[in-house]
Amino acid sequence: MSSALTTPPDAPPSTAPATPRETLIYTIAGLLRGIRHVAVGASSPIPAAGAMLCRALAERDGDPRVRLSILGSVQHNFFTNGSVELFDCAGQGRIDAFFLGGGQIDGRGNVNLVGAGPYPQSKVRWPGSFGSAYLYFTVPRVILFREEHSPRVLVDKVDFISAPGVSEEGVYRTGGPKALLTSMALFDFDPGRPGFRLRSIHPGHDLSEVRAATGFTFQADDSPAVTPPPDAETLALLRGRVLGELSETYPAFADTLRAETAEAGALQKEEALHK
């Protein structure tokens, strides 16, 4: 392992325990493991950080190079054929992973980016479907990511299908949802049922809380696993190199992460004093 990767230019990284957001970033990096090309939409700092950490880990471990396309970024976007190029790439299978959010996500993996209530006169209108109605079909590993874990987001049935979780037999489909990650838990998607299965709950939450906050039914073990936080070495990589890369595209968000880490460090010191 190269020490140059883990040492930031200025101060050594904090050794405070992982913050909830750092655990999310680490979880995303794990979900991306083994991919060659991941695309990240504009204004998606946590997925971008996860993709950057995945790239750094692959480099550290001598795995094949990970390509990263961040839409709307100059430094991390190599497309020269306009906004159509992402979709052309995806259509050919040149993109392995992508992230989708959603105003609503339901238990069958359907995503709604259009609005709540009857269409077209939505009571609450969201921006629109963007590329989801295409990318959900053509990108093999779509990760559904939404920090808010609540019954208004994770619904039994979406009001509008921007992109369906599964398709009828005979419909051309090389892509679809693989996992759903929120601020509370991580689910795997099973297209056979179709439905979600709880893989792990993030530290500080429990199963009854997850059930109460989820508007759809899902499978779960009686005592689900706890989402593992990053080990010290990975955390140092995240707080050093990855944060530096992230600052180029998402300076404000990188500052927020630094502040959260500092807070966690202060809390750790305080707790040590009281022991």
């Binding site: 979709f87 259509g91 009571k123 609450v124 629109g128 479907s129 963007f130 590329g131 295409y134």
Partner: peptide
């Protein structure tokens, strides 16, 4: 845009980028 949608003041042709 959001207000016009809610009030039914505009017609919509929702699409997806590659379309």
């Amino acid at each position: 845009f959001n207000r016009a949608v809610r009030d039914g003041a505009i017609d919509l042709r929702d699409a997806t980028c590659p379309a």
